[in-house]
Design a protein around this nucleic acid. Structure first.
Length: 324
DNA sequence: AATTGACTCAACCGCCTTTTT
DNA sequence: AAAAAAGGCGGTTGAGTCAAT
């Protein structure tokens, strides 16, 4: 049979953590670690909390090296880029942002970044408290000629073009830093989400909670793996024994994509060949904010679109996809 | 000074996947 | 192989805060 119940829900405290509870949890974990068992931890630590609650508190707030506060422009770039690529998979996005938690990024996206994108080019919003002048609104970002982003081959062409084609007439979302570097160092056929892909993805997103589970039917050079080999603060990485989080990369059609700064590695015969380290280089940020705005707007009204419109669907239609 | 409304973010909820028995 | 718990994750909520009126 299975294991003992997770926790006695009648006997656990809910709501905000007190400083005393924080101290207890922190002290216990620093002394003993999680022991690989969050469920048993609160009892051992003398806390009347659910194990899941302890885990969340530790990962999102108490653990060392957590970054709180302002997101940098570069972090904005990474978030936008990855959101466009993979959607709301915050844990994966968090794995690219050392010190940030998935919860943080999710909150930041939902409360600020999304609004920033939607609000870009429109009348300025009412003055907000804690006004964050650090983040440049998209309307102030430099723009380039539409469709520059896909000039190197695009998402559809080389992969066989199954069901996803970049319309040359369509304005192109030039994704920030990572996507650009991705493009610049990529041969034709290297996939990256265009605005169209983002649109489709967003349409499908709301109606497909837990829709992102990608599977591999067979191993081949056409696959996708996400993540990085860095320490991250996503919820998953607090579990060193958790199992499936080793070095993770996104691989597609023979190329991989992973790590903060987004190295592009060529994959030949299942071996990675790193082409360059982009950690330092930061090309200009480019957005077609009108389009992003449109995408975000449409999300709310077209949430029920079928899964076939999701980026995973498009990716899957072109190559094998895997999560590792 | 009081009220209102927007905003933030920690924490909860529920579902899916993985692991254990 | 099946069942159930644990782990993990994304969506949502609600209390607290603060600016505007």
């Amino acid at each position: 049979m299975g294991r003992a119940p997770c926790c006695d829900k009648n006997n656990v405290k809910k709501g905000p953590w007190s400083p005393e509870e924080d101290a207890k949890l922190k002290e216990f974990i620093e002394k003993h670690g999680t022991g690989g068992n969050w469920i048993a931890l609160p009892q051992k630590a003398g806390l009347r909390r659910c194990g899941k609650s302890c885990r969340l508190r530790w990962l999102n707030y108490l653990r060392p090296n957590i970054k709180h506060g302002e997101f940098t422009e570069n972090e904005d770039r990474v978030i936008c880029s990855m959101f466009a690529s993979i959607g709301s998979r915050w844990s994966i996005i968090a794995s690219q942002l050392p010190g940030r938690t998935d919860n943080d990024i999710k909150n930041y996206w939902n409360t600020k970044l999304k609004k920033k994108l939607i609000g870009a080019g429109a009348a300025p919003p009412r003055v907000q408290r804690h006004q964050n002048h650090h983040h440049r609104p998209l309307s102030m970002l430099p723009h380039t000629t539409p469709s520059s982003f896909y000039s190197a081959g695009g998402f559809s062409s080389a992969a066989g073009g199954a069901g996803f084609h970049q319309d040359p007439a369509m304005p192109t979302l030039t994704l920030p830093t990572t996507a650009q570097e991705y493009l610049v160092s990529s041969p034709p056929g290297l996939p990256m989400a265009s605005a169209t892909a983002l649109l489709h993805h967003l349409h499908g997103a709301a109606a497909t909670a837990h829709h992102h589970q990608l599977q591999v039917k067979e191993e081949s050079s056409n696959m996708i793996v996400f993540g990085s080999d860095q320490q991250s603060c996503s919820s998953s990485d607090g579990m060193p024994h958790g199992g499936h989080h080793g070095r993770e990369l996104m691989i597609f059609d023979g190329y991989s994509y992973g790590g903060y700064g987004s190295c592009i590695d060529q994959v030949v015969d299942n071996k990675l060949f790193q082409q360059q380290d982009h950690q330092a280089a930061q090309p200009p940020l480019e957005y077609n904010f009108d389009e992003i705005k449109q995408l975000l707007m449409n999300t709310t009204t077209n949430a029920a679109q079928d899964h076939g419109g999701s980026i995973e669907g498009m990716i899957a239609s072109q190559g094998k996809v895997t999560m590792m």
